[in-house]
Structures are given as structure tokens and as C-alpha cells.
Amino acid sequence: MKRTKRRLDVTISAGSMADIAFLLLIFFLVATTLDKDKGLMMQLPPDVSPTITEIKDRNLFKIHINSSNKFLIEDEMRPDLEGLVAEIKEFVLNPNARPNLAENPKKAIISIKTQRGTSYAFFIETLDQIKEAYYQMYGEKLGLSSDEFRKLDRSDPSKSDMYVFARSGLPMNISIAEPDLFKSL
């Protein structure tokens, strides 16, 4: 008597492998972005001989970073940038009309001064905080968070209008002071 031995078929069906591979390939093609186009944008001033403009001290928010990476914010020594975002917002908007803060948001200027020997990381950190403060103010005008504001799609006309409205009357005046020519000994 001949018995056919039933064996389990152990081969994996690979018929749909090609389809899966192409789906994956297409997924990665679409999902991969090279984010080399992201960063902190800054407009440098034109190269003309400096003109002397009177700026009232109350309209200027001064941030100095010295060569040993110590902060001096509004003439006060600081170990770090804790609370800077809130301070800048209060300075620019001046909700309680304090005499020592900016007259109005249009006149407010945030100034960063670095020295030779300051580390780039500290400059970027400061600039980031200032930008964050402004984006929060723009967002608050529209009832959005700063992240939501920055993700507004400006190719959409209604969103573009929102963007323009938020930025109107609240210019991001960030000034980078001229460098010292020589390292002070």
C-alpha cells in the first residue's frame, strides 16, 4: 500500500513581491525630503557708510554675548536665555505702556552684538529665541501657535492674507551690530 505523505508547503509566495517593492519605492520617493532648505533667515543691512540715527534707548532691546559666551541682556548679566521669549514679547508689545519698554511695536528693535571669540552656537540660540518670540506674536494675532503660523501655506490666497495681516505693524527688526575690527587683548 502506497501512502502519500502530506508535507507542509513551506515556500513563501513571492508573486506579489514586485508590487510591494514598487509601492515601497514610490512611498520612499514621495516621503523623503532633503531638508537643506531650512534655517534661520536674516537680511543684512545694505553696505553704506553708517548714518547716525537717533534711536531712543527705550526702543532698543540690547543683547550682548561676549567672547566667553556670557550674556548681557538689557545691561544685566545672565547665565542663560531663560525667559527671553516672554521678555521680548513684553518689550515689543508693551501691553502695560511702561515707560522703559518700546513706544510701539514698529519702533522696537532687538539688537544682538557678538564679539570675536563668541561661539556661533550661542548666536544661533539667541537669534532662534528672538524669531520664536516674533512668530508667537504673529501666531497670537491669528489665534495660532508659532509652529502653526510658520506652517501656513502661503500659496493659498486666504492663508497668505492671514500671513500678511499678522505681520503688518509688527516688523521683525533684528539688528546685528558691526563687528569689532580686532580682538581686544
Binding site: 534661520l40 543691512p45 545694505p46 553696505d47 563668541t118 546685528i176
Partner: peptide
């Protein structure tokens, strides 16, 4: 630029860019 780069050099580069009217800067982060 590198995190530990000297701001002096970066400022010099910016001065040079200003002189040649390339005033839009994007700091890569």
C-alpha cells in the same frame, strides 16, 4: 557653520557679503 565657529569670522564673512550685495542669509540649522 560649525557650532563652535568663531563669530568674528562669521561677521567678517557677512561684511564681505554685504559689500557684494548678497544680503539674504540663511543660517543652516
Amino acid at each position: 557653520a560649525d557650532v563652535d565657529a568663531d563669530m568674528g569670522l562669521i561677521m567678517d564673512v557677512q561684511q564681505e557679503l554685504r559689500k557684494h550685495q548678497a544680503r539674504k542669509i540663511l543660517y543652516r540649522t
